[in-house]
Design a protein around this nucleic acid. Structure first.
Length: 843
RNA sequence: GCGGGCGUGGCGGAACGGUAGACGCAACGGACUUAAAAUCCGUAGGGGCGAAAGCCUCGUGCCAGUUCAAGUCUGGCCGCCCGCACCA
């Protein structure tokens, strides 16, 4: 009997139907099994899935299926991060309604994900643009408002002139909008904020306990939160006012040679009103400030205001007050004192403007009289000098002493300064969750009562005029005040889409609940045991989600603070790039490769082969997953995604690699096909044949590798087992080996596994079959072959019993022919025996 | 500038401080075939000795060090990648 070649297309469709019909992957909210919540960052419905999705969802799927096989009650849901600007752009450019466009995209992508054969509980699917979802989000917003975690404030905001909306700090990258790439402008606007800074300390402290998060991500968050301890104090200004400054180095106060304020400091602005030169200087700073990356190399610039401040410990010591472009209004008080000897920026500035440089901290054992600072500020430890009552103290003691005295004088307080600022969530856009607030002339700002929610988006909006479409709508914003019943206006802003994705994982616990989050269900499922996504969300999404979860906890919706117990950030999918001789990107399908060179298809014109880069539209080096699935099937593309490259690193897509995966699919199928005279289903293998050993070693290794997300190694172990299956082995041993092979690839190539399982005579599903268990006795072997070194160089090899005692191992080693030759008759001085590893003879 | 990561065959990559290069891709040789595809078997880091089995030697970016033993640990360089970026 010979079966046909494995038909991936038919088989995959078949098994997808079977799983769906049996609801194989439905999660139970009422189970006695241990739970496992496996989640991948949900996709934006752009229209088609890309290779990045395939890699991400394949990894999650392997974990989900693996956990199910291990007996866990698994939650592995899928949804859509469906609000956002592309829908509005499509509406403007193509005249389609954003909602229609989005749901059409979702329909396509859902089919594509289903074709991947993901073990997802589709009954829990939702999109963030579903009224049912954003209605709950509006309730949450009101809850947060009432809990004091939401406030409205006028502030300098980041304005994206292309997307025509404001952005949160985190969403400005290198002075540009994270989506549009446009240079961000500054505006003063009244906007809604989430009080994320209220949790700054908690968000920081918890990072230390998040062992299953990558160190890198924790560090990025730590830096972003940016805690620094210091002293805030005031100078008396010669104009009779006070100037507040913040410093982390109060110990260097006697080395101060100037005070500097930001061009945006209120004092600068006040001076500008009466002094044209000040105004011109501020103008110049702002111009440079907004011209993008030039900030990097921007020269330090200062302007002497003519004002002075008195040194807090010596009223006769006057320091000039300068406006300096490197002082940021957004951090601390927007004013500093400059101590050039111990701060590089201050030193650069002082050298340029010929200000004194007096060292006040000198390294241990250095004479303060001879210690000089050149072009490099001294920021290391040492003893205080030239500092009156601080002389001789170390830095820490001096900081404390100054702080104590300042506090006693009522001039300063020790404070903690954060880099993190509150999360600006208002967006002047249409396709987002409407902010459920009403502005009443009489009552001020009034939340929409929960009974009146949701505030639904209108369908009839225009996108052919610039500005906020909701604001431009003729009637939508007009409403009555929930409090006094008088005429009032709705808030026409919508929420940042990062709000949508900051609690969806909690909603999945019970996506049909009447409350935003069903406490019982969420407390059962949360935290997410394994979250998988791109490192690009290391700060934005992950920090916001951690904050919102704390808010949910405060409101009693959940008992946890941290939403994601385990986080894994996967690498990108890359491909070689091609360029023409004018530097233009050449699409993959316009290139053909011949004899190691690349040409324009059908011509002899060479194209330049560039390095491998993340697949992207702009570089034209993307491969559409659907074409691969169409040709080879989902299992092949899944296998590719897991093979070779460690999951956290970038993977390079190659045609050869894909073909190799496809060949392996066929090879597995053939192994089953050609396996004649197997023992019947249910036969127990016995004994300790080589094949049985290989089988159980594979179980142990693959289990360990998948457990630790080392999929590339798991794949290699599977290859090794496949190679070990020998037609000459016993019928029972071969059945065991083949069944094991199939169960091990089950999470990785689920369709192929089901087909093979059936071909092996089973009437059950791999999806319902427990994960195999390794017999420890078979994993360990009786004999081991170890190397024997002489003076650290490998000279021979001996095979000894695994439990051989040291004496007999030594004995065997010394008898080895190669060892004898290498010893040249010398007597060993020392023999190191590492059991089951190595013998090293020192002669 | 600061912080983090990485550097191993033609390529992707393996390797609790213990036989470097598992496993795969590409390559080459052979078998099967009228032929091709598919498949199967075999070879394979560099150099040297040998008819062969095999043996010697050099090899994990570079230079030192610790150790019986270093791809792995330590220090210093070089290169690449990522994050933050005048945060006082």
């Amino acid at each position: 009997m010979t079966m046909a070649r494995y038909n991936a297309k038919e088989s995959e469709k078949h098994w997808q139907g079977v799983w769906s019909g049996r609801q194989s992957f439905a999660a139970s909210n009422d189970s006695t099994k241990p739970k496992a919540y496996v989640l991948e960052m949900f996709p934006y419905p752009s229209g088609r899935i890309h290779m990045g999705h395939v890699r991400n969802y394949t990894m999650g799927d392997v974990i989900a299926r693996f956990r199910k096989a291990q007996g866990f009650n698994v939650l592995h849901p899928m949804g859509w991060d469906a609000f956002g600007l592309p829908a509005e752009n499509a509406a403007r450019d193509k005249g389609v309604n954003p909602s229609d466009w989005t749901y059409a995209n979702i329909a396509v992508m859902r089919e594509q994900l289903k074709q991947m054969g993901l073990a997802i509980d589709w009954s829990r699917e939702f999109a963030t643009c579903d009224v049912a979802y954003y209605a709950q989000q509006q309730k949450l917003f009101v809850d947060f408002y009432e809990a004091g975690l939401v406030y409205r404030s006028e502030a300098d905001v980041n304005w994206d002139p292309v997307d025509m909306t404001v952005l949160a700090n985190e969403q400005v990258i290198d002075g540009r909008g994270w989506r549009s790439g446009a240079a961000v402008e500054r505006k003063k606007l009244s906007q809604w904020f989430f009080k994320i800074t209220a949790y700054a300390q908690e968000l920081l402290d918890a990072l230390d306990h998040m062992e299953r998060w990558p160190e890198k991500v924790r560090l990025m968050q730590k830096n972003w939160i940016g805690r620094s301890e210091g002293l805030r104090f005031s100078f008396d200004v010669s104009n009779g006012g006070k100037l507040d400054v913040f410093t982390t180095r109060p110990d260097t106060l006697f080395g101060a040679s100037f005070a500097a304020i930001s061009p945006d400091h209120p004092l600068s602005e006040r001076l500008a009103k009466t002094d044209k030169k000040v105004a011109a200087f501020i103008e110049e700073c702002r111009r440079i400030g907004t011209t993008e990356a030039a900030i990097e190399t921007a020269e330090k610039m200062g302007f002497d205001t003519g004002l002075t401040v008195a040194h807090p410990f010596d009223p006769d010591w006057k320091l000039p007050v300068l406006i300096a472009n490197f002082v940021l209004m957004g951090y601390g008080t927007g004013a500093i004192f400059g101590c050039p000897a111990h701060d590089q920026r201050d030193l650069d500035f002082a050298r340029k403007y010929k200000l004194p440089v007096l060292p006040v901290v000198v390294p241990e054992g250095t004479d303060p009289k001879t210690f000089a600072v050149g072009d490099e500020a001294y920021v290391g430890p040492g003893k205080l000098a030239n500092s009156r009552f601080l002389d001789g103290m170390d830095v820490e003691a001096a900081k404390t002493e100054i702080a104590k005295r300042m506090e006693a004088m009522g001039r300063g307080t020790r404070t903690i300064q954060w880099r993190l600022r509150d999360w600006l969530v208002s967006r002047q856009r249409y396709w987002g969750c409407p902010i459920p607030m009403v502005h009443c002339g009489a009552c001020g700002i009034v939340p929409v009562p929960k009974a009146q929610l949701p505030v639904e988006l209108p369908r009839d909006v225009r996108f052919d005029v610039p500005g906020n479409p909701l604001d431009a709508h003729p009637t939508w914003k007009h409403t009555s005040c929930p409090k006094c019943g008088g005429k009032a206006q709705r808030d026409t802003d919508t929420l940042d889409t990062f709000v949508d994705s900051s609690w969806y994982f909690a909603r999945f616990a019970d996506p049909h609940a009447d409350a935003p989050v069903d406490a019982k269900a969420a407390n059962y499922w949360l935290p997410v045991d394994q979250y998988i996504g791109g490192v690009e969300h290391a700060i934005l999404h992950l920090l916001y989600a951690r904050f919102i979860t704390r808010g949910l906890h405060k409101l009693g919706y959940v008992d946890v603070d941290e939403p994601f117990a385990g986080l894994f950030t996967q690498g990108m999918v890359c491909h070689e790039t091609y360029k023409g001789h004018n530097g233009e990107w050449i699409a993959l399908d316009e290139v053909e490769k011949r004899d190691g060179k690349a040409y324009f298809k059908g011509t002899d014109t060479e194209v330049i082969v560039g390095r491998s880069e993340a697949m992207s539209k702009s570089k034209k080096n993307g491969i559409a997953p659907e074409t691969i699935i169409d040709v080879y099937g989902a299992d092949t593309i899944r296998w590719f995604m897991l093979s070779d490259s460690p999951p956290e690193r970038d993977i390079e897509w190659t045609d050869g690699g894909a073909e190799g995966c496809w060949r392996f699919v066929q090879r597995v199928w053939r192994l089953i096909d050609e396996a004649d005279a197997l023992a019947p289903v249910g036969t127990k293998a016995d004994g300790a044949s080589e094949l049985r050993r290989a089988t159980h070693r594979a179980i142990a290794a693959v289990t360990d590798d998948v457990e630790n997300l080392r999929f590339n190694r798991a794949v290699a172990q599977v290859y090794t087992l496949a190679g070990a299956i020998d037609a000459k082995a016993g019928a029972a041993d071969r059945r065991e080996a083949l069944e094991t092979l199939i169960l091990l690839i089950g999470p990785m190539m689920p369709h192929l596994a089901e087909s093979c399982w059936q071909a092996l005579g089973h009437t059950t599903l791999v999806a319902d079959t427990p994960w195999p268990k390794a017999d420890p006795a078979l994993v360990k072997s009786d004999t081991v072959t170890i190397a024997v070194q002489v003076n650290g160089k490998r000279r021979g090899e001996i095979t000894v019993a695994a439990d051989a005692d040291e004496a007999s191992v030594k004995d065997a080693a010394l008898k080895d022919e190669g060892v004898v030759r290498a010893l040249e008759g010398k007597t060993p001085k020392r023999i190191i025996v590492v059991p089951q590893r190595i013998v090293n003879i020192v002669a």
